[in-house]
C-alpha cells in the first residue's frame, strides 16, 4: 500500500475533517472516507472547545461532526442564556448515549432539567438561575455537585432522592441576614438561603464537600448536625466563606 504524501494541501485537510461515508465534501475532492480523521481525534478537538455551545456550533458543520458531537462523554455549559422552552434534557438524553459527566454553570432561563441517561455518572450544577425542576435517574448517578441551584425545601427534597451518590458537594448558605445590594447577582443569591438544621436526611455519601457561606453566625453546631447525618464519610472537605465578599478565610481538609 502506498504511503500518503507527506504534505497535504488545505482542501485535503478539510475533506479529511469533514468526510464521512460519501459526504459531499469528500466526493468533491476525491478523498476516500477512510482517510478521514478518526472519531476520537475529532472528539479530542471538540473536548478542547471547552463549552457545549462551541461544540454544538461545530455540529452545524456537517453530518459527521454532528454525529461525533453525540459521542462526547463530557458536556459543559458555561454562561448560557436559554430562551423559550429549552429541551436541553431531551437533547442530552436522546443524543448523548455515552455521556458520563454533565456540568452546568451560570445558566439563565433553564427552568426544567430532566435527564434520562443510563451512562451519566457525574453532574455538577452551579448557579442555575431560575431552575425549578431537576430530574435525573438517581440509580446511576454517583457524583453530584449542587451549588446555589435550589431554594429551601426543593433542595432538601432533592437531596433525599439520591440514594446512590457517593460523592456530594453542596453549598450551605447559613445566614438569616438579608443584605440587599443592587446587583442582579446578589439579589439572586439571597434566594438560595436555607439553614443546615433543616436538613434531615442526606444520602449516604463517602466523600463530602461542604461549602458554608456564613455571615458572623455560629455554624459549628449545625455543621456537626450535618456531619452526624453522614456516618459513612471517609473524606471531608469543608470550605468556609465567612466574609461578606465571600472570600475564603479558612479551608479545612481532613482525610
Amino acid at each position: 500500500m502506498g504511503c500518503v504524501s507527506p504534505i497535504l494541501n488545505v482542501s485535503d485537510w478539510a475533506a479529511r475533517l469533514d468526510s464521512y461515508g460519501g459526504e459531499p465534501a469528500a466526493k468533491r475532492s476525491n478523498v476516500s472516507p477512510s482517510g478521514a480523521l478518526p472519531d476520537d481525534v475529532l472528539m479530542l478537538i471538540l473536548l478542547h472547545l471547552e463549552t457545549i455551545s462551541e461544540a454544538v456550533r461545530t455540529s452545524g458543520l456537517s453530518r459527521r461532526w454532528r454525529r461525533v458531537c453525540t459521542l462526547l462523554s463530557e458536556l459543559k455549559f458555561y454562561l448560557v442564556w436559554f430562551q423559550g422552552p429549552c429541551e436541553l434534557g431531551d437533547i442530552v438524553s436522546s443524543r448523548c448515549p455515552g455521556l458520563c459527566k454533565l456540568s452546568l454553570c451560570n445558566t439563565h432561563g433553564l427552568t426544567t432539567l430532566v435527564v434520562r441517561s443510563e451512562s451519566l455518572l457525574q453532574m455538577d450544577l452551579y448557579c442555575l438561575y431560575g431552575l425549578l425542576q431537576l430530574k435525573i435517574d438517581p440509580s446511576t448517578l454517583k457524583e453530584l455537585t449542587l451549588h446555589r441551584c435550589f431554594v429551601g425545601n426543593n433542595f432538601l427534597r432533592l437531596l433525599q432522592w439520591f440514594q446512590f451518590i457517593h460523592t456530594l458537594s453542596i453549598a450551605l448558605i447559613y445566614s438569616k441576614m438579608i443584605f440587599c445590594v443592587d446587583t442582579y447577582y446578589e439579589q439572586e443569591r439571597c434566594n438560595f438561603q436555607y439553614l443546615m438544621e433543616d436538613i434531615k436526611v442526606l444520602p449516604n455519601v463517602v466523600f463530602l464537600t461542604m461549602l458554608v457561606i456564613n455571615q458572623r453566625h455560629t455554624f459549628s453546631a449545625s455543621s456537626f448536625h450535618v456531619l452526624r447525618l453522614c456516618t459513612g464519610i471517609s473524606r471531608l472537605l469543608l470550605v468556609l466563606h465567612t466574609s461578606r465578599e465571600l472570600e475564603v478565610k479558612l479551608c479545612l481538609a481532613m482525610y
Partner: peptide, 26 residues
Amino acid sequence: SLVAKKVADMIKGKSPMEIRRTLGFP
C-alpha cells in the same frame, strides 16, 4: 492534546461558516 487544542482554538468563537472557511472546507 496539543494539536487538538490548536485546532479547537482555530474554531473557537466562530460561526459555522467562519469555521468552514478557517478549516478550508469548500
